[in-house]
C-alpha cells in the first residue's frame, strides 16, 4: 500500500491489518479454547439447533414443505457454499481493482461533483 500524504483520513495500512488479525483471532478463539468440546456435536450449525428446539417445543409439528433441491452430499453442498463465497469475493476484488486503477489514472472524466455533507447523490434525476 502506498503511503501518500495526500489530504487527510487515508486509512493506515497497519491498522487495517490489525483489524484483520483481530477478526481472525476472534474466529479462531472458540476452536483454540475448545468451546465445543463439551457438546455431543461440537460446532453444529445454529440453524439446525433451532430446528431441534422447534421439535422439542412442538413435537407434533411436521414441516409442510421440503426444499425443491437438496445437495445430494455434504461435499456438493460445501462446494456450492464455496462457489457462493468465491463469486462474492471475485466481484469485490474486481470492484476494488477497478477503483484502484481509476484512482491511479488520475481524476479523469468524473462527471458529477461530489455532493458534500449529508446530501446524497442518487436522489435527483428519475
Amino acid at each position: 500500500m502506498s503511503t501518500e500524504t495526500e489530504g487527510r483520513a487515508r486509512p493506515r495500512a497497519w491498522a487495517t491489518w490489525a483489524l484483520v488479525a483481530v477478526a481472525a483471532a476472534l474466529a479462531a478463539l472458540p476452536l483454540l479454547i475448545g468451546a465445543g468440546s463439551h457438546l455431543e456435536e461440537p460446532f453444529a450449525g445454529a440453524d439446525g439447533q433451532a430446528e431441534e428446539t422447534i421439535q422439542e417445543i412442538a413435537p407434533s409439528y411436521e414441516p409442510w414443505f421440503s426444499p425443491l433441491y437438496e445437495a445430494p452430499s455434504g461435499e456438493i453442498e460445501s462446494g456450492l457454499f464455496a462457489l457462493q463465497a468465491a463469486v462474492g469475493a471475485g466481484i469485490i476484488g474486481y470492484a476494488l481493482g477497478v477503483l484502484r486503477t481509476r484512482r491511479r489514472a488520475g481524476p479523469a472524466p468524473e462527471p458529477a461533483d461530489p455532493g458534500g455533507g449529508d446530501g446524497r447523490a442518487p436522489a435527483a434525476d428519475s
Partner: peptide
C-alpha cells in the same frame, strides 16, 4: 457481493456452535 461472501461463511462461536 459482500453479503454473498459473508453469509456463506460459517464461523465458530464461543457457544460451541456455528453461525
Amino acid at each position: 457481493a459482500f453479503c454473498f461472501v459473508l453469509s456463506a461463511l460459517k464461523i465458530p462461536s464461543v457457544t460451541g456452535s456455528c453461525s
